[in-house]
Design a protein around this nucleic acid. Structure first.
Lengths: 202, 202
DNA sequence: GTCTATAGCGGGATAGAC
DNA sequence: GTCTATCCCGCTATAGAC
């Protein structure tokens, strides 16, 4: 169950499951679909996972784990500038959502399906990721870069980012990084000028 | 199917269905649950609806229809001030999400389940609602109240609002109107001062 | 308009051979 | 670790009486 004791086979299956869960949703994805996708029969699936819910748990763990890793790495590659850090977090979030890492999408959108049985380990992962966000938001607030309530700002920003899954087309003209920059630009309180540098994209 | 030819009985059932769809999700809500909730047997349900998908369609139509009505009314009660109109739209959106109108939540979160068979009428309703938003955002941009790309700003704002369904507790200290005001405050480019009036809520 | 009864299907999961 | 075969269940939807 833990990310440590995952066989290569299990990891590969988890990756494929994430893909189907995003396309069809957890409930509409059958174990037969999952099995076919990885070229085995449905019965064999239960050698790797206790039941269907455990597959979802594995995907969600993988997704949150990746998001946490990538966000930490992005922050490490950062100066201490609050704006740069905020931008880095937004970019990292969208990177995990769109750069062939369906697992994070599943973690966000199918969390409720798992909630009753959510392990402490999973909750801890998610809390760690959210803590990263709140810290970055706090710094931006303290620097006067943005304004508002720390709790609400974090949730509004994450909401705006998460909802991109519903409308963003990766094959379109904009990169995920473009989106992240536009969002940060949108909430930043410019001390002066009339906001032209970000207004002429489309 | 159209909102016009809905018997009172059917409207009542639609209301109850919306509640269950929000609680459990469409896929996990069975026709037996739906029937029990309204005090009839599952077989009787199909006298009112052709199949389960038609129930979803009715809920989504109801939800979008209501959202459109309430948003229009809110704008009508408004001065021509772009900030007031933006605030009114945000408030109206959250009002339809949280003030015992589960149908709008279903419309937003279960849209994909219906998408393959979405009627022209339904798409038209949704487009009309989105057009309302884009118009208000356009005015706010033109007035220099906010900044960014019209397309992206609308989607970010709607994303932030829609995602509140996942975390907002109506029994908590904040009203939906508080949330709306905070969001508008967050994206507004203050020409001067250091953003204190909105920062001391929590 | 609601009931009972049930058809018909597809789902998750198991057992035991290989 | 994968297969075949299958159990058992609950789901949507239908048929016909009342």
């Amino acid at each position: 169950m833990n990310v440590m004791n995952a066989s290569p086979r299990r990891k590969e299956l988890t990756r494929l499951a994430a893909q189907l869960f995003v396309q069809e949703g957890f409930d509409r994805t059958t174990v037969r679909m999952l099995a076919q996708e990885m070229g085995i029969k449905s019965g064999s699936l239960f050698h790797h996972f206790k039941d269907k819910k455990e597959i979802l748990a594995a995907v969600i763990e993988e997704g949150t784990h990746n998001a946490l890793l990538i966000a930490r790495r992005a922050l490490d590659d950062c100066e201490d500038d609050p704006e740069a850090r905020l931008r880095a977090m937004a970019r990292a979030h969208l990177e995990t959502l769109f750069t062939d890492r369906n697992a994070h999408v599943v973690a966000l959108f199918e969390w409720r399906r798992l909630a009753p049985a959510a392990s402490a380990h999973l909750s801890h992962l998610r809390d760690a990721y959210e803590a990263l966000w709140v810290a970055v938001i706090d710094d931006a607030l303290a620097a006067g870069l943005i304004h508002g309530d720390r709790f609400l700002v974090s949730r509004f920003v994450l909401g705006a980012l998460n909802w991109t899954v519903r409308w963003y087309d990766p094959d379109g003209p904009r990169t995920p990084d473009d989106l992240a920059d536009e969002l940060v630009g949108m909430i930043m309180a410019r001390q002066s000028e009339q906001g032209d540098s970000l207004a002429a994209h489309d």
